[in-house]
Design a protein around this nucleic acid. Structure first.
Lengths: 119, 119
DNA sequence: GGTTGACCTGGAGCCCGCTCCAGGTGAGAT
DNA sequence: ATCTCACCTGGAGCGGGCTCCAGGTCAACC
């Protein structure tokens, strides 16, 4: 399989069709190919790129930053160092999120224990 | 110190003054005391409760859920089991968030490695 | 006794990230 | 032939969570 209908792309990526169109509109996704009737046909590459977007999105990267990343990717191989920097910075933020969640979770656990002690 | 001016409450809780007013307006925070001039004076208890809200908020609990929790707290001690259930459910969600972030982070790491291999 | 400056209220506005809608096209099933 | 259905486009609308604004009141320092 090397080409995906809109419905298949939805299935594959977990994004809604509206979101896929939106991402294309704002330039997160490069102009997707169309068939004769003007309907989108997503390539394997599109699907792969959407997987990357999904990962960045789900780790809390704002769309504006994803857009910068998309532009770096489009600009060619000489931007690889910049992409590494961007991802490393994001990685630090993800790390911070995890640490923060774990700390807050401690608070929640203590609260639960306290409530249990009231019973 | 047993009473806080708005500025001190902002300092202490990390919420903006507008947010504190908003939380009071929607009932997340019970009607805060006022001085003769009508200015808020936050009690130690208010500050403690705001700490709890901060924790729930920062772990991604929607305001609607925090509101349910606030109502349970106000309803009295007989709701302690419900509060425990609510916090345990939230705890599971926090756990899931952490697991999810950790997994996505693996993807990001692999991507960074791949980019490094291109240099 | 005038000027800051911190605060008040009600209500409008904003940003993000979608999501929905109207009106239309073309392909395939009955 | 007609119906259904997946899709198209441009643009409006939405929900969450604040954030800002106008117009006003005190209090406190110079």
């Amino acid at each position: 399989m090397s080409v995906y209908t809109p419905a298949e792309a939805v299935e594959e990526t977990g994004f809604s069709l509206d979101t896929l169109r939106y991402y294309e509109k704002i330039g997160l996704l490069e102009r997707v190919d169309r068939n004769a009737a003007g309907q989108r046909r997503f390539s394997e590459e599109d699907i792969g790129w959407l997987g990357m977007l999904r990962c960045l999105r789900d780790t809390g990267m704002p769309i504006a930053t994803m857009l910068r990343f998309a532009e770096l990717v489009r600009a060619g191989d000489h931007t690889v160092p910049d992409r590494i920097r961007l991802l490393e910075e994001h990685d630090r933020q993800v790390q911070a999120q995890i640490a923060n969640l774990a700390e807050r979770q401690g608070y929640i656990h203590r609260k639960i224990s306290y409530y249990r002690s009231m019973l």
